[in-house]
Design a protein around this nucleic acid. Structure first.
Length: 325
DNA sequence: AGCCAGGACGGAT
DNA sequence: ATCCGTCCTGGC
């Protein structure tokens, strides 16, 4: 059993965003299933989030709205770690946060691109300044996608908790106990049989494949970032266990392509209702309508619709647990 | 108890 | 190119 690591506060970083910036709903997505990788404190509107700079250099962040602290739009991050950090480390932390939350993205161009659809006006008004968030690495987001595929959200949560408690690191900082995501190495050194015991089912083989792929190709992330959309999609699907569904999640979240969205079983129902007033329309019809309304921004528009729905109806979480992902 | 849903794959067509 | 059985588990 691995020990809990205590992290010490190192410093504070201020990061500005291109306005408009919505701190709360950029760092916190009500529609995402909760994991112990992060914890959003509603009362203080602070986001606690872990990640690592290397196998043994662990970071815990406490992020808040820069607007409140310094009157500028962006994020103020308290940095905690188990190691002392160099200037280069701090620079890497900055760029990670900035990329994960799209701080340098021009969100106005999205609003301009969808002005012809009145149905998106409400969500945009409510969530103005919200961006895609993906604090995960590519390896991590593909693990999450694998656990989302072919099951209900309730089971995905279970699998995630089992994997994190077995292979992740426990950390403790600023009064929070969280996990840090496991690495490809942690999984490769394990076995398919061990994964199966964590109730991930047939995914055990896929999770092992993905970990193996990343331990053999450590530069895969950086390579994919420089590729064209088509090449990146192809590159992702070369990994055994990664099909169109997982690739889309990686493309939208990690590679930040605004046109990607999976109309999986629960989203199909939501958008069917949103477009046609009933839950029963087929995926193809829903997808056509989304493309018609939102063109190559359909992923981003979908995000606004979904998050707005979850903000207005917190009980959506419970409805979705029973529905496939 | 039996059957189905939910992605990915691989083999058959 | 498209179709089908298989993998696994939980829910009906």
């Amino acid at each position: 059993m691995k020990r809990t690591k205590k992290l010490q506060k190192i410093c504070e970083l201020g990061l500005e965003a291109i306005p408009p910036f919505n701190f709360k709903y950029t760092v916190y997505k009500p529609s995402h299933f909760p994991t112990k990788l992060e914890d959003f404190d509603e009362a203080s509107e602070a986001m606690y989030r872990t990640f690592r700079l290397s196998q043994n250099k662990i970071i815990g962040l406490k992020m808040a709205d820069l607007q409140k602290a310094r009157g500028k739009e962006g994020i103020i991050a308290e940095v905690f770690s188990n190691r002392s950090l160099t200037d280069q480390d701090l620079q890497r932390i900055r760029s990670h946060i900035s990329y994960a939350y799209g701080l340098n993205e021009d969100i106005e161009s999205f609003y301009k691109a969808v002005t012809n659809d009145p149905s998106i006006k409400g969500p945009i008004k409510k969530l103005r300044g919200m961006r895609v968030s993906c604090f995960e690495t590519l390896f991590e987001i593909l693990n999450i996608s694998s656990m989302l595929q072919n099951t209900t959200v309730k089971r995905s949560e279970q699998m995630m908790e089992n994997m994190l408690s077995s292979f992740g690191r426990r950390v403790d900082y600023d009064g929070r106990q969280l996990y840090v995501f496991y690495t490809p190495k942690d999984i490769v050194e394990s076995s398919e049989q061990m994964l199966r015991e964590l109730k991930v089912g047939y995914r055990a083989k896929f999770l092992m494949e993905i970990a193996r792929h990343f331990s053999i190709n450590p530069d895969l992330e950086e390579r994919l970032k420089t590729m064209s959309f088509e090449d990146a999609k192809e590159g992702l699907m070369e990994i055994r266990g990664v099909g169109p569904y997982s690739a889309r999640i990686a493309l939208f979240q990690y590679l930040r392509r605004p046109n990607e969205i999976n109309f999986d079983s629960w989203k199909r129902k939501i958008f069917s209702r949103c477009f046609f007033g009933n839950e029963n329309e087929e995926v193809e019809k829903v997808e056509r309508e989304a493309k018609q309304r939102w063109g190559d921004r359909m992923g981003y528009a979908g995000l606004y619709v979904i998050e707005d729905l979850f903000v207005r109806n917190p009980e959506m979480q419970y409805w979705r647990k029973k529905n496939g992902s």
